[in-house]
């Protein structure tokens, strides 16, 4: 929580701690292989991106039918990112 308040240079510095925590938590709840989940922040682009890697075979779980799960994850993670003072994209990779 205190991360969000520390205004050390807006989003970049906070590293989207809340968004990353929420994203990691949610994804690990959904996959078969939580240990294979990793998240990295890519803030080189215009808009920062959280890249999520999941184990082979777990892609379907985080995407869901017609992308519904992925969409829900994005919604929740962006709510979390707002607490970090910014906005992020979420990309799923395997």
């Amino acid at each position: 929580m205190s991360d969000a308040v520390d205004d050390t240079e807006a989003e970049g510095a906070s590293g989207f701690a809340t968004a990353q925590a929420v994203l990691g938590y949610v994804v690990r709840q959904l996959v078969d292989d939580p240990d294979a989940v990793s998240i990295e922040l890519d803030d080189r682009g215009r808009r920062p991106v959280l890249n999520v890697h999941v184990g082979p075979g777990d892609m379907g779980r985080v995407i869901g039918k017609r992308g519904r799960v992925a969409q829900s994850i994005r919604t929740v993670v962006r709510a979390a990112a707002a607490r970090d003072g910014g906005d992020v994209e979420v990309e799923f990779l395997d």
């Binding site: 949610v26 959904l30 969409q71 829900s72 919604t75 929740v76 707002a82």
Partner: peptide
Amino acid sequence: VLVGPKGNTLNAIQELSRT
């Protein structure tokens, strides 16, 4: 933050819970 505009975030959380 957990409710969101028009309950969007809440709905997303509910969807994830269901999943």
